[in-house]
């Protein structure tokens, strides 16, 4: 299972990086989103993988998964949204000001 998740992280990273290297703003934002998925899953996995032990304290249960990476990733997900929004609005602004949607502001 760990290998499978590593594979997923790898594929998401690769796809994200490739898209971020494109020249138009929209794919770059898509790439950013994919990469933030990869980063979030990676950070989350730093608490190692456990099945069926959510960190919610119940009577008679002593085994829980590590809650700390989850707390970190939870805010990271929301911040990723803020970042994606900021990036896409930058792209819109650039399009309005420069007349095209190339990341460098010039058609080439």
């Amino acid at each position: 299972m760990e290998a499978l998740l590593s594979l997923i992280i790898g594929v998401l990273t690769a796809c994200g990086v490739y898209l971020m290297l494109r020249g138009r703003s929209f794919p770059v934002v898509l790439g950013l989103t994919l990469l933030s998925y990869a980063v979030n899953v990676f950070l989350f996995a730093m608490g190692r993988l456990t099945i069926g032990q959510p960190p919610i304290i119940r009577e008679g249960i002593s085994q829980y998964t590590d809650p700390l990476p989850q707390a970190l990733v939870l805010t990271a997900i929301v911040i990723s949204f803020g970042m994606t929004a900021f990036a896409i609005v930058l792209a819109l602004k650039a399009r309005a000001e420069l007349g095209n949607d190339h990341v460098d502001g010039r058609e080439s």
């Binding site: 760990e2 290998a3 998740l5 590593s6 594979l7 992280i9 790898g10 594929v11 998401l12 990273t13 690769a14 796809c15 990086v17 490739y18 290297l21 990869a38 990676f42 996995a45 730093m46 608490g47 190692r48 993988l49 960190p55 304290i57 829980y64 590590d66 809650p67 700390l68």
Partner: peptide, 29 residues
Amino acid sequence: LALAAGGGAALLSWAVLTRPFTSISDYFL
């Protein structure tokens, strides 16, 4: 570049996930 980055991320994850660790989370629990 993307393949190398993805491969690196996958190997890194694999290396971490297969190693035991200690966490500070017991305090929170």
